[in-house]
Amino acid sequence: MSGFVIAATARLAFLPYVSEDSTYFLIPWMQEFRDHGAAALSGEFSNYNFPYLLLMFLAGLLPVEPLIAIKVASLLGDALLAVSVYALAANYRTIGVSPKLAALIALFLPTVVVNASMWGQCDAIYTAFLVLSLRSLLRNDGRSAWLLWGIAFAFKLQSVFFLPALVLISLRNRYSLRFPIMAFGVWALLSLPPAFFGRSLASTFSVYINQTQEHRLVAGAANVYAWFPTATAEQGRVPALVVCGTALLMTAVAYWRGPDTTERRVLLTITVLAVCPLLLPQMHDRYFFAAEVMALLLLRHKDLFLTPWFFATTGAVVYVLYFLSNQYALPLMLGSVVQCLTVGLLFRALWRRHSGRQELRQPTIGISP
Rank of each mutant, 00 (worst) to 15 (best):
F57H: 14
W149E: 07
V343R: 00
F155L: 13
R143P: 04
T271V: 04
D303N: 14
R353P: 02
V18H: 09
E214Y: 06
F179L: 04
L267V: 09
V253E: 04
Y322D: 13
P239W: 07
S159P: 10
S325M: 06
F155A: 07
Y208C: 07
L177W: 14
L332Y: 00
K71F: 06
A226T: 11
R93V: 04
F161T: 14
A106S: 15
L201N: 06
C244F: 05
E32G: 11
G120S: 03
V318S: 13
A329F: 05
F45H: 13
A152C: 05
F153V: 02
L341E: 03
P331T: 09
F197C: 06
A349F: 02
G344S: 05
V112H: 04
S46D: 15
L189G: 12
A103C: 08
A290R: 01
I70S: 11
Q235V: 08
A59D: 10
V114D: 03
I209Y: 11
L306S: 12
V83T: 04
L190K: 09
Y17S: 09
E20F: 00
W146T: 01
A145I: 08
N173E: 14
A103H: 08
V112L: 04
Y52A: 07
E44V: 10
M118N: 03
A128P: 03
Y319V: 15
A202E: 13
T307C: 14
S136T: 03
A116H: 03
A82R: 00
S117I: 01
T230G: 02
I169M: 15
T307M: 13
N223W: 04
M250K: 05
F129Y: 13
I367A: 09
E65D: 13
F45S: 06
L80T: 11
I151G: 00
L132R: 09
L334T: 04
Y208P: 09
V243H: 05
M250E: 08
D285E: 15
